[in-house]
């Protein structure tokens, strides 16, 4: 119902989402109590960066992998419910 093949930038945007999901499991920070900026534990700081990265990744997905034909499909409504 969304139609169309995904562009290469679209695939790369999705790849970034997958990479972020993997990086979210930051096992290397598990026992690291280093403070960033003198007050943020590195385990928290890294996860905040994952949140920021997620927003960027989703912006790229929206830009390059948007389901362009979905509104046409929705507008062909037949109110069968």
């Amino acid at each position: 119902m969304t139609g169309g093949k995904m562009s290469i930038p679209g695939r790369l945007a999705w790849l970034l989402v997958v990479v972020l999901a993997i990086l979210h499991y930051d096992f290397w920070n598990w026992n690291d109590r280093t403070l960033v900026f003198g007050f943020v534990p590195v385990g928290l700081w890294f996860q905040v960066l994952v949140s920021i990265g997620a927003a960027i990744a989703w912006a790229l997905v929206v830009r390059f992998a948007w389901p362009t034909r979905i509104e046409e499909w929705a507008d062909e409504g037949d109110s069968e419910a």
Partner: peptide
């Protein structure tokens, strides 16, 4: 929090938009 940042948006994109379209098409 960071998990939800990835997963929630994923669900909005892959499920939410589809359900919106289905909801609109079939009222």
């Amino acid at each position: 929090a960071s998990a939800s940042g990835i997963i929630h948006s994923l669900v909005f994109f892959l499920v939410g938009i589809k359900l919106w379209a289905i909801g609109k098409r079939f009222n």
